[in-house]
Every structure is written in structure tokens, then in C-alpha cells.
């Protein structure tokens, strides 16, 4: 009985957990994606590539394309808002930092679905905001703020912004600001010092924020459902539909596999750019 066997016993639960709950479902999904939908219920064990070929149809390609566009728009907007937010938060005095951190985290204590319904109460036609604006005499007619692409985009940005802020913050917090002073001292204008020093050193935070926002925004379906009023179809919605309504599990699995490949490609790109194996901040 050497030490090695004892060690193995300690590590074993981790392997078992991983096999059961990570590798298992993945393999199940992969296998499923090559099977055929049964007429009434479940699947037939017949190998086919038809599910993947089906994704090539214009309507599904459009869905992917819409999802990617929305994901890019969401990521760009969260970056645009989240970067300055995280950057200035890192420069605040200690006490203020804690306050802002709390303000960012508090919404997480409420279910995301609830928060989306909260948005509806605020933004719907004749909702609180419209009533307020009408009372002020700023508008006469409904703005129709909900159930369109903009509403979905706003909802996505709202839901995913904290991930961007916290990622940027965690790398900006580690910044040595004398480096910026050194750059200015060596002849850099403020914007030059920002581009050559601050931006470069907070790049890992930006990239991990981008990944943490981009990946979920490809898959989040309930925001498009609730704020898009069923008019916006994303890959996430498509998968959910195929799984729950159409009951075409193999096709849903094939869609999920493609989505996952896309995600993996993205993380691989991240590693390439940053030469880093760890995601900054939250992961």
C-alpha cells in the first residue's frame, strides 16, 4: 500500500464526476446528433448525417447568422460600456470599490427571468416609463419599446454587462499605474499611454470579458423569448424549440454540437492571442 494508491482514491471522485456529468452528456449529445428522429417519440438507432446537412438550409443558416450578429452586437456594446466602467472602478478608493462591487452583484440575487419581467413592467406600452414620459408631456404616443430587436439587444447587454465589468475590473485592478506615468514621462500623450500600456495590460480582462459575454449570448433563449415576443429566433431558441416542441432531439443535438464547436474555436483563439491558459477573473 504505497502513497500512490491513496492519492488515486482521493482523486477518483473528481474523475467519476467528470465522466458522469461532463464527458457522459457530451458523448450522449454527439451520438444523438448522428441518429434519426423516430416518428412518434424518441430516436431510432440509425446512423445519419442528415441532421448536420439540415443545418445548411437557408432558414437555419439565417438563424445562426442572426445569433452571431446579435452576439457580436451584444459583445461590442458590453465592451463599450463595461470597459470604462471597470477601468474607473479600479481607480476608485477602496471603500467605493466595495460599494460598486455590491451594486453589480446585487441583481444576481434575483432570478434573471424575474428581472426580465421587471423590464416588461417598465418598458411595455403604457408601462411605467411611458406613463412617466407622457405625464411630462415628452411623448404623445407609445414608443413601442418592447418586442423588437433593440429590446432583445438591450436585455442581452443588461444581463451580460456584469461579466464584462468584472473581467475588465479584475485586470485593471492589478495595473501598476506608475507604468502609465512612466510612459507619459518618456514622451507619451495620454491616449498613447492608454493604447500602448493600459489597453495592452488589460487585454486579458477584455478578452475574458468578451468570451464570457459572447458565448452565453449565442445560447441565451429566454431573453429573446420574453423581450422579443417570439419574433426573434436565435440558435438558443431553435435548440429549445426542436427539443421541447418539435421533439427532434437529433437535430437539436446537431445544432448544439455546432454551437459548441464555435465556442471552442473562440476559446482557442483567445489562448492564441493571450498565450494564457486561464481566463482572467471569473473563470
Amino acid at each position: 500500500m504505497g502513497r500512490k494508491s491513496n492519492n488515486w482514491l482521493l482523486i477518483a471522485p473528481m474523475y467519476i464526476f467528470t465522466l458522469l456529468f461532463v464527458a457522459g452528456p457530451l458523448i450522449y449529445m454527439l451520438v444523438l446528433s448522428f441518429l434519426q428522429k423516430a416518428d412518434v417519440w424518441g430516436v431510432e438507432f440509425v446512423f445519419t448525417l442528415k441532421n448536420y446537412l439540415k443545418i445548411g438550409k437557408q432558414v437555419y443558416l439565417n438563424t445562426f447568422w442572426e445569433s452571431i450578429k446579435l452576439a457580436f452586437a451584444t459583445t461590442a456594446l458590453t465592451l463599450l460600456i463595461g470597459y470604462p466602467f471597470g477601468y474607473f472602478m479600479a481607480k476608485l478608493p477602496e471603500k467605493r470599490k466595495t460599494l460598486f462591487m455590491l451594486l453589480i452583484v446585487i441583481p444576481f440575487w434575483t432570478n434573471a427571468l424575474m428581472r426580465m419581467y421587471g423590464w416588461i413592467i417598465l418598458f411595455r406600452s403604457n408601462g411605467l416609463i411611458e406613463q412617466g414620459l407622457m405625464a411630462l408631456g415628452l411623448i404623445d404616443d407609445s414608443l413601442k419599446m418592447l418586442y423588437n430587436y433593440k429590446a432583445v439587444l438591450a436585455g442581452m447587454v443588461y444581463a451580460l454587462l456584469p461579466f464584462m465589468i468584472l473581467s475588465v475590473y479584475s485586470s485593471a485592478e492589478k495595473m501598476d499605474w506608475t507604468l502609465v506615468e512612466a510612459a507619459k514621462d518618456l514622451g507619451a500623450k495620454s491616449w498613447q499611454a492608454f493604447v500602448t500600456i493600459t489597453l495592452k495590460l488589460t487585454l486579458p480582462g477584455i478578452l475574458s470579458g468578451v468570451i464570457l459575454v459572447f458565448i452565453p449570448s449565442m445560447g441565451l433563449f429566454f431573453i429573446a423569448d420574453i423581450l422579443g415576443g417570439g419574433k426573434i429566433m436565435l440558435v438558443g431558441n431553435l435548440i429549445q424549440n426542436q427539443l421541447m416542441s418539435t421533439r427532434d432531439w437529433p437535430f437539436a443535438a446537431a445544432l448544439a454540437v455546432i454551437l459548441m464547436l464555435f465556442t471552442t474555436l473562440f476559446i482557442w483563439g483567445y489562448k492564441k492571442i493571450t498565450h494564457s491558459d486561464e481566463l482572467e477573473g471569473l473563470l
Binding site: 501598476d176 506608475t178 507604468l179 506615468e181 512612466a182 510612459a183 500600456i197 495590460l201
Partner: peptide, 8 residues
């Protein structure tokens, strides 16, 4: 600078 402030 005191801590050298080299760009890492």
C-alpha cells in the same frame, strides 16, 4: 522610478 516601472 523607484520601482523601475519597466513595461512588463
Amino acid at each position: 522610478f523607484q520601482n523601475y516601472a519597466l513595461f512588463p
